[in-house]
Each structure stands twice: as C-alpha cells, then as structure tokens.
Amino acid sequence: PPASPSASMPPYFMRGSIIQLADGELKRVEDLKTEDFIQSAELSGDLKIDSSTVERIDCSHTPDAVVIQFSVGEHKAQVRVEVLVEYPFFVFGQGWSSCCPDKTTQLLELSCAKLSVGDVCISLTLRSIR
C-alpha cells in the first residue's frame, strides 16, 4: 500500500526557504533548476537521480490526497505514493508542479504548474553499494 501523506506540508517547500546544494551554494526553493538537482546528486556519494514518469493520478480515500503512480528509472519500476494534492514535485526542465497548483500557491506561495500524466519528475534512489 502507498505510504500515508503527512498531515502538513514540510517547511522547506515554503517560498523563500533556503536550500543548500551539495556544493554548499545556497538558493531559494523557488529558484532551483533541474541542473541544481543533477549536479548535487553527482556530488553526492550515495544518492542517485532517477526519472520518474507519472503514469496515473487517482483519488485517495484520504481527504485532500491523491495516489500517484510513477514509473521509476530505467527499469520502469511501478511505485505508488499517496500525497496531499498540494505536494510539489520537480518536473525535469519545467520546475515545481503539483496536482493542485492553486492550493500549493495558496499554502506555500510557491508557483507551480499542474502535474499531469506523462510528466517526468525528479526522484532519488540510493546508489547500490557493491
């Protein structure tokens, strides 16, 4: 079963939050670019960026939540996660996107696009340890 969404949004998605990249550079969350994530993962020893394509977006039994099915990485592993509708994902080449951009903007002041089936989101996996 998908993991339950947290009751409230984490503070780092709030517009103006200061984010530290792997090279030490500080950026505001709304200024992050795709390259920031890719370069930070490259500098990280144990984290790997994956491409996760949105396959389905379904209603959830939990109020204000959705179940998103992703196809993750080169093996296209199917992963379902349950998140609040305002939870933002970072889409390659596009930026922050959520299932309900209006609510994300209202709660977090973070400008978002509408997350749709076919969007390719940035996700992380642990590098396999040999």
Partner: peptide, 25 residues
C-alpha cells in the same frame, strides 16, 4: 540587545522524494 534570528537551511535532497520499488529482486 537583539539576538540575530537564525534562518533554517535545508539540504537539497529534502525536496526530492525517494521512490523505490517496495519489492526487490
């Protein structure tokens, strides 16, 4: 005296979800 207000700094990987299949082969 006014103490300087500390601004929280979050690591970049906090913003990215870990998506891994629940079953491994």
């Amino acid at each position: 005296n006014v103490e300087p207000r500390s601004v929280p700094v979050f690591p970049w990987h906090s913003l990215v979800p870990f998506l891994e299949p629940s079953q491994s082969n």
